[in-house]
């Protein structure tokens, strides 16, 4: 898959001296869903804003489909749709008027049939003549997506697309994003709902303190950095871990009813067999067992903590 966005040595220092981005290098592949994760203030919105032309970079370059975002801004920006984090709309305009305005602004001739298609896909068709001020928060969020899609972009930036959105609408939006990807649109989303990235992203980037600390295939990231745990519910409670089991990485629950064994799934030997043998020798029996795997959220938290 070829790259559609190339970011090289991108830095941003605001006039107050705050360095929001530090030497970012990143390639986004054509047609993928890329999730940019990071805590608040990590630099996610600044990065998106630079790519979209809203914020000037201090150093570095960004090319989109081979065109520089500053020198070739007309061609480049026409390819991009942006859904901002804030629900920023012209409250007095109608839904239809606002989406039509966006299409014209991005240099496209009027196409009522296309606007109708978008509004129907986003369940806004019934509200097309309503003023934006009468819409609910979720509808406004969908309106922003409709505006961003109005000029048929091939790259879509979604900055915290489901912030403040209820669970049902969130599922609907994920479906919209998947449908878009199916049509070949490249999607970059920032989020701090990790489950959103886990659900949808092909690749994940983690940014904190203005630095991009990880860029990896989601599945690979979870495989590499994920941990697996075996939880053994004991037949009899223990007051302490017996000396015979001391060589294993074990943790005894506060009530003494279970032992948790953390192991590396990629190691040649996980150590499970020897643990179970040692337990039998020590006379420690178990009534039930369970395994858990760390989520993307666990990995994200570990990564961000390790960087602090």
């Amino acid at each position: 898959m070829s790259d559609i966005i190339s970011i090289r040595d991108l830095s941003k220092t605001y006039s107050g001296g705050f360095q929001a981005l530090k030497h970012i290098n990143l390639d986004i592949r054509r047609g993928e869903i890329f999730a940019l994760l990071g805590p608040n203030g990590a630099g996610k919105t600044t990065l998106i804003s630079i790519v979209c032309g809203i914020v000037n970079p201090t150093t570095g370059s960004v090319t989109i489909d081979g065109g520089d975002i500053i020198r070739d801004y007309r061609r480049v920006r026409a390819m991009i749709g942006l859904v901002p984090q804030e629900l920023t709309t012209d409250a007095f305009e109608t839904v239809w008027g606002a989406v039509s305005f966006s299409r014209g602004l991005f240099g496209k001739p009027p196409n009522p049939a296309y606007i109708e298609k978008i509004l129907k896909a986003l369940s806004l068709w019934e509200k097309k003549d309503n003023r934006i001020m009468t819409l609910s928060g979720g509808m406004k969020r969908r309106l922003l997506i409709a505006k961003a899609l109005s000029h048929e972009p091939i790259i879509l930036f979604l900055d915290e697309p489901t912030a403040g959105v209820d669970v049902e609408l969130r599922q609907d939006m994920w479906q919209v994003v998947r449908d878009l990807r199916a049509t070949g649109v490249t999607i970059i989303l920032t989020t701090h709902y990790i489950e959103e990235a886990e659900e949808m992203a092909d690749r994940v980037g983690v940014i904190t303190g203005g630095e991009l600390i990880v860029v990896e295939e989601k599945a690979e990231l979870m495989r590499k950095l994920g941990k697996k745990q075996l939880i053994l519910r004991l037949s009899e409670p223990l007051s302490a871990i017996p000396a015979a089991l001391a060589r294993h990485e074990l943790e005894l629950a506060g009530d003494g009813q279970s032992l948790t064994f953390t192991y590396d799934t990629h190691a040649g030997r996980t150590g499970i067999t020897s643990l179970l043998e040692d337990m039998r020798s020590a006379g420690v029996g178990f009534a039930d067992l369970d395994t858990t795997q760390s989520s993307l959220e666990d990995i994200f938290v570990d990564l961000v903590r390790s960087k602090r």
Partner: peptide
């Protein structure tokens, strides 16, 4: 008005 409401982002990100 677009600066006040925040919709200026659209103008700044448009190929104009």
């Amino acid at each position: 008005f677009p600066r006040f409401t925040g919709t200026i982002y659209e103008l700044l990100s448009a190929p104009i």
